[in-house]
Write a protein that binds this DNA or RNA. Sequence first.
DNA 1: GTGAGGCCCCTTTTT
DNA 2: GGGGCCTCAC
Length: 726
Amino acid sequence: MSLRLEHLNAEQLAAVTAGDEHMLVLAGAGSGKTRVLTTRIAWLLKSGKVSPGGLLAVTFTNKAAREMFTRLAAMLPVNPRGMWVGTFHGLANRMLRAHHREAGLPREFQILDTQDQLAAVKRLARSMSVDEDRLPPRALQYFINARKEEGLRAADIQAPDEATRRQVELYAAYDEQCRREGVSDFAELLLRSYELLMRNEPLREHYGARFRHILVDEFQDTNRLQYRWLKLLAGEASRIFAVGDDDQSIYSFRGANVGNMADFEREFRVAKVARLEQNYRSQGNILDAANALIAHNRNRLGKNLWTADGAGEPLRVFEGESDSEEARFIAEEVKALQREGLKLACIAVLYRSNAQSRVIEHALFGAGIAYRVYGGLRFFERAEVKHALAYLRLVATPEDDNALLRVLNFPPRGIGARSLEGLQDAAKARGSSLWAALDGLTGRAAAPVAAFRGLIRSLQEQTATLPLPEKVEHVLSRSGLIEHYKNEREGTDRIENLGELVNAAAVFSQEDRSTGLASGEGDEDGVVMDPLTAFLAHAALEAGEHQAGEGQDALQMMTVHSAKGLEFEAVFICGLEKGLFPHEQALLQKDGLEEERRLAYVAITRARQRLYLCHAQTRLLHGQRRYNLPSRFLQEIPEGLMKWLTPRYAPPAPMAFGAAPKKAPGFAKAREAGGFRIGQNVIHAKFGPGVILDAEGMGGEARVQVNFGRGGIKWLAVAVAKLQAA
DNA sequence: GTGAGGCCCCTTTTT
DNA sequence: GGGGCCTCAC
């Protein structure tokens, strides 16, 4: 076992070899966090303090889990098989599979991804005749997920008003629908696994005694439920080792609670908080820029990164006339970097939102630069792949209404809306799944419905004993999907993707055997999961980030969110514009600006040597040309660290009709802002009527605080929110 | 019941 | 710019 403790600095070493206590490690960007975590695991194992089965290491993203797993595999003499390493959702899934009976789930329960869940919610909303204008399915979906992530079931919620009461009622009905169909959404995995531990004392004691060491990565991103799950999982003798960085908390939009760090410190009586502040990644100027930027945030635990490295190059700032010019610039610079000997894989283009990637892709394609886009529409989320998966799900569990609805008439086989309605009525009347209602159908569609039923039945029989990849291939070829796409104009790509799905199944079976990551043949806990079910769970939980093109030298493109935890020699941050980064939608949320700034901090600290900050004066958004001012974040980085490749942006002269002159950042307290005064009644398109409580800033920076009564109290940017005087 | 065409909506980030 | 949903013609 290669345990290179001598390469650690004093703080890292102290954390790695910490004794029998709970630990909180405050680890700055690039301070060797993952290294500390993995070395700690190796150290624990080597010193005999714990066996592989007594360890649980949990991360937030699949990428991070994979990274940890690979590093461990390299460090340890034995396969880390049997160790519980994965994402919260992945581990919850594993636990539920092992105890599906106690958890009240069918053995082969299926997992709904976000798309599936929305479809299920829509279906429910229709069956309960919800007015979708008043309560959009997406809002209901959000409501349900948010409650689950707070650990609340419908029965636990006190509805203060009629609208909420209705949502709670629908929440209950949704849960009932999921139970009936034997499916579980993402949040449900966690909540159910939490409830399982809560109610089942022997099980709780079993796991509590088993997991002597629980290690948590990216602790700042955990939500309330995840924290409570950890608390429940940890037994008397368990020791939690949590690593996090409050400055990199960028998921509060989905319930992450930085406060968990403080709670952990208090509730677990953490004696000493370790701090890793030496950065081994970025050169001085880059680090100074990051430090200066993040210093604008108020809510911080406080920490300053330093490096023993030199200052390095200044940050390069580029302003393009348009988004396509920005893209062209990036393509040219990438070529120049290549000529300097940099590998494409060491260069990253980061953006705030996925929609920005297209223009850049176009320029890269034109310049003949190989690139790889992470995120966006993932492999397992493509329509044709979802269709294929639906057939597979029906083979595994025909009661899966979601899957059945997706493919009952796809490819078209003459079962239209009318027949479907009859089917749904029949199912409802009998309280059965749609599958069970199929045989009772009479009328025009009776024959095609019977044929469909026969198809699924025969697929089940024919593939029962086939290994996974052959099973997938067989189902695909018999489903009629391929023939259907052959007749479609743009079906070639889709057929290719279907072929890729067979490939993915083959790769999965192999990985499964070699790593045990997905436990297809039973891990040391005796969990045996049918390979098909395991593969379907994998498809839902991992959405297929690492499909084709792995290992090829290609430029890396991704959102800032998905770049967290990664590092590159050279980084382009693009679209540094007001409204885009910080994103205007984010500013509507509480502490939104600070989260956006942390996001920018994450972006900057991805770079080792060279950092480009790009923005464009105008860009095409939703098919409309928008004119954007440079991001305020550019002004928050000290001038001396930057080198402008284009003339420094100069604020425009005040406009003729008396617009307020642009002021330096920093809000002035005011009685009024952007034409609204304190005490004024206003109407917001989404939140309804409200009254202005407070105002600050001027011109484009103007913000007002509005009390919307039931809708809560919100700070809104006047330039963004559609506020009307009432 | 099917497919084409048109309209309208959105559009942050991820498991 | 594009996807979901509706309407309309066959």
